[in-house]
Amino acid sequence: MTDESTPSAGNGSRLDPAEQRAAVRDRYARIASESSSCCGDTDSCADAPTDRSSELGYSDADREAVAAGADMGLGCGNPTAIAGLEDGDTVLDLGSGAGFDCFLAAREVGPTGRVIGVDMTPEMVERARENVDANDATTVEFRLGEIEHLPVADESVDVILSNCVINLSADKSQVFREAFRVLRPGGRLAVSDVVLSADLPADRRADPASVAACIGGAAPVPALAELLSDAGFVGVAIEPKADSESFIREWDDEHDPSDYVVAATIKAEKPRGTAAAQ
């Protein structure tokens, strides 16, 4: 089992976990309040969210289906496109932000389905709840909580989504254990995130701004695969996306993050007949 105390493991950062949570919470509280966009720390983050969402893989139909205010241009992919959602599914979004992926998922699962968004930033949760009425999304709810300690019952979810959020966690192994706990047997994980493609300089790993900007906390593919397997998942598939360089490069005005991180799709399943992890 990988030791998360090292940067090569799921931790990906040498920051104190409390300092890391504070840096992430502060950054996304500011984004929610100022309506700026994107994971990175650059002036270009103020670009129109719809333009950035097109780069991330959302279609015109996706963007037009959700009322303005939910699509903030955050993320590094489109997890709803890889999730294979079906009518009646219960969906959980880890780090749901203003709710864009949740509202798209609600359209896929229909009136008999349910979508739960969890975010640790009160300002984001407040904004997402305001967007529920704007989208007439009666099957969507948002809860304040940390993805390492989900406010969700055991074995109550069919599909877990997440969009460029797990890299922000100081304890990825706990995130995956919680995901395993809340999934029903046969449930699945469909995640868009960033992974390390090269060794990240130590000063970037220890920089709160770099970690909060989806760079300093990224982990390499083998470490993530091991953490998912250790949590009990099977069918683990992590596929980096080389074409993500075009938007990752815009995340920092002073450095090129695409030298070190690349977007990826992450899929895994909870075996059928498996009880929740304790």
Rank of each mutant, 00 (worst) to 15 (best):
1 M>S: 15
5 S>P: 07
13 S>N: 12
22 A>D: 15
37 S>L: 01
38 C>A: 12
39 C>D: 08
40 G>V: 05
47 D>H: 05
48 A>M: 09
53 S>K: 04
53 S>H: 02
61 A>L: 09
69 G>T: 07
70 A>Q: 03
70 A>L: 01
73 G>R: 02
74 L>C: 14
76 C>V: 15
78 N>V: 00
84 G>I: 04
94 L>G: 03
96 S>N: 02
97 G>V: 12
98 A>P: 08
100 F>R: 03
102 C>L: 09
103 F>N: 02
105 A>D: 10
105 A>G: 14
107 R>G: 12
113 G>E: 10
118 V>C: 04
130 E>L: 07
135 N>W: 04
136 D>Q: 14
137 A>T: 07
141 E>R: 13
150 L>W: 11
153 A>C: 06
153 A>P: 08
155 E>C: 07
155 E>P: 15
156 S>A: 13
157 V>I: 15
157 V>Y: 10
161 L>A: 03
163 N>Y: 00
168 L>M: 10
169 S>D: 05
173 S>W: 01
174 Q>C: 02
180 F>C: 07
182 V>S: 05
183 L>F: 06
189 L>C: 00
190 A>T: 08
190 A>Y: 07
198 A>G: 00
198 A>K: 05
202 A>Q: 09
207 D>A: 11
208 P>F: 09
210 S>Y: 11
212 A>D: 07
216 G>V: 05
219 A>L: 10
234 V>T: 15
235 G>T: 06
243 D>K: 15
244 S>E: 06
245 E>R: 13
248 I>Y: 01
248 I>G: 00
251 W>L: 05
252 D>W: 11
254 E>N: 15
260 Y>I: 11
260 Y>M: 09
264 A>C: 14
264 A>H: 00
270 K>C: 00
272 R>E: 15
276 A>N: 10
